[in-house]
């Protein structure tokens, strides 16, 4: 419990540094520290699958962001500061935190979850699905359609990134076709 609070404070400090630092490279590295903190939190909270996934995803996010920032532009933007937006958002987020505090009183206490649905999964998951890892039995059996939908979303985002990043763009007006598509031959 104490270790979790220390880790969360560490992650908050890392996020503040990532937000307020001048250079984009140090910002990206700080957000990497936050991500690995999340991974260790998952390990402490009894979710080893999530910890492994989080490490892999974190490394990929670091690679993607460094590709996006370092080769292009590593400087800060400090022409002017929008003081009104800053003050207004800080007031609004203070209100947000207050209402969140009120809402958390309705939640079950930390360390005592309700688990109405999950008790069923834990009791009968092994006989019904044959998987000893109950998380995997939920992902791939009980909620397999959900996973299929998520795979569709992932595929769509990959196609979007590919379309945005491909080097060959739209052809200019009056430019001849360079590639032949369709059935070859005289028709």
């Amino acid at each position: 419990m104490l270790l979790m609070i220390f880790l969360l404070i560490f992650m908050n400090i890392g996020a503040i540094i990532a937000i307020e630092t001048k250079y984009l490279l140090s910002s990206v590295i700080s957000i990497g520290a936050v991500g690995f903190g999340v991974s260790i939190m998952f390990l402490l909270l009894g979710a080893p699958d999530l910890a492994i996934t989080q490490v892999v995803v974190e490394i990929l996010i670091l690679i993607i962001l460094i590709r996006g920032t370092i080769r292009l532009d590593n400087t800060a933007i400090e022409k002017y500061r929008d003081t009104f937006a800053m003050v207004a958002s800080l007031i609004f987020f203070g209100l947000f935190l207050t209402f969140a505090y009120v809402a958390f009183k309705a939640l079950p206490e930390f360390g005592h979850p309700l688990m109405r649905v999950s008790r069923e999964y834990l009791q009968h998951g092994v006989e019904r699905t044959g998987a000893t890892n109950i998380v995997m039995s939920v992902v791939l059996d009980y909620r397999a359609y959900d996973t299929l939908g998520e795979a569709t979303v992932l595929f769509t985002s990959i196609v979007g990134a590919f379309v945005v990043l491909r080097s060959q763009g739209r052809k200019k007006v009056g430019e001849e076709d360079t590639t032949q598509v369709g059935i070859p031959g005289d028709f």
């Binding site: 699958d49 989080q54 999964y121 834990l122 109950i134 998380v135 992902v139």
Partner: peptide, 16 residues
């Protein structure tokens, strides 16, 4: 055991 249901949902959310 801890609750497996949010773990299963978050596992896909991370990748998304």
């Amino acid at each position: 055991s801890v609750d497996p249901l949010p773990q299963a949902l978050v596992l896909t959310a991370i990748v998304i």
